[in-house]
Design a protein around this nucleic acid. Structure first.
Lengths: 187, 187
DNA sequence: CTTACTATTTGACAAAAGTCAACTCAAAAT
DNA sequence: ATTTTGAGTTGACTTTTGTCAAATAGTAAG
């Protein structure tokens, strides 16, 4: 529970009581490789935190898989649209490695956010951080070459390249597997 | 003040007291065309609401203007990074038409969010909505053809195409002016 | 009504990335 | 040990969009 608690505190401090209530609301699962945390057309009930392992979040667009996000190392992740709007998800969340995952149930979280002002604030800050990531990512995808995007990923999260199959990395970078392969062989 | 209040209520209801305090915290400006609401390298102090008029939010990338967002018709807008992280903005916000604009000051908003739980919740919901837009936009830019993106914009917000110069629309769609011109002439 | 300026269009060519198919290599299964 | 399978690479070719330059249309100012 320790690393989750730290991740929370890093985003926004909570009072002792809120922290106690909030932390104890998370469930923990040990899930194998290729396990589905969220299946297509299901309403997503959890915000997750990955303590160890890797998951990818993807969807199908014209029969092809598009990787929207890859989470590892003490990161939070969720299907934003489905979780907050309570709609069936077009996103799929699947582990890439055996993983140690925490999750907080939608209704539980919302009840806590209603009850504790500081939990609501924490939630707001979490969403704000996601938004900042999302904008940065969009900027990169729109205006930087595939090569540059790959190099950036290599620089910021080399872990991903070591632990995730290239097919997924390619689609995370918004390019085809072949293009990625060519970029990699250029030196 | 009416249309602002409606826009707020549509996102999240506020108690009578919160609503009164919150609404009265907004300032109003009538600004001419081409007016800068936010200049480069300035910390952004406001969340804005545009009651009438149009603004565009853009930045420079390799000496070229990139339009990140175009807001019109009762929309909220802001420089997310700068406003929330209190960092000088690489974004520029400029009106495209004479506009009727409301703004709430950073410290005022944060004080209200601290004081009133429901204002914090409203803020969280606003950020969540932005995040959903941002993700949808990224998906479109990454996986739909320029033509498709243009048609979608034409369908959803034809207002923008009527009232905004094509240069800005092109860069909002993530394409060059020439490409946009060709798409338009194809029928 | 002209001039000057800006916005938009068009053409010729180049670059980036995608598509499809064949091939290599290594790991897993028999 | 051999076969099967899946991941990744490579080649040839196509498509989409960008770039640069020139032409045209549109608008505002004198």
């Amino acid at each position: 529970m320790d690393s989750l608690q730290k991740a929370i505190s890093d985003i926004s401090p909570l009072s002792a009581e809120s922290m106690k209530m909030f932390c104890s609301a998370w469930k923990n699962w040990q899930v194998p490789k290729n396990y589905f945390l969220l299946k297509e057309n299901t309403v997503s009930d959890y915000i997750y935190f990955i303590r160890k392992g890797i998951v990818r979040i993807y969807y199908f667009k014209n029969e092809k898989e598009v990787t929207e996000w890859i989470a590892l190392d003490e990161q939070f992740f969720l299907s934003i649209t489905s979780f907050f709007q309570r709609k069936p998800s077009h996103l799929i969340i699947q582990t890439i490695e055996p993983s140690d995952v925490y999750g907080i149930y939608h209704n539980t979280l919302m009840a806590l956010a209603d009850q504790y002002h500081d939990v609501e604030r924490l939630l707001r800050k979490m969403v704000t951080l996601s938004l900042i990531f999302s904008q940065e990512r969009m900027d990169r995808i729109q205006f930087e070459s595939a090569q540059h995007r790959y190099e950036k990923l290599l620089q910021t999260t080399p872990e991903i390249i070591r632990r995730v199959p290239l097919t997924y990395i390619a689609s995370f970078l918004g390019i085809t597997l072949e293009t990625l392969s060519r970029i990699r062989s250029h030196k």
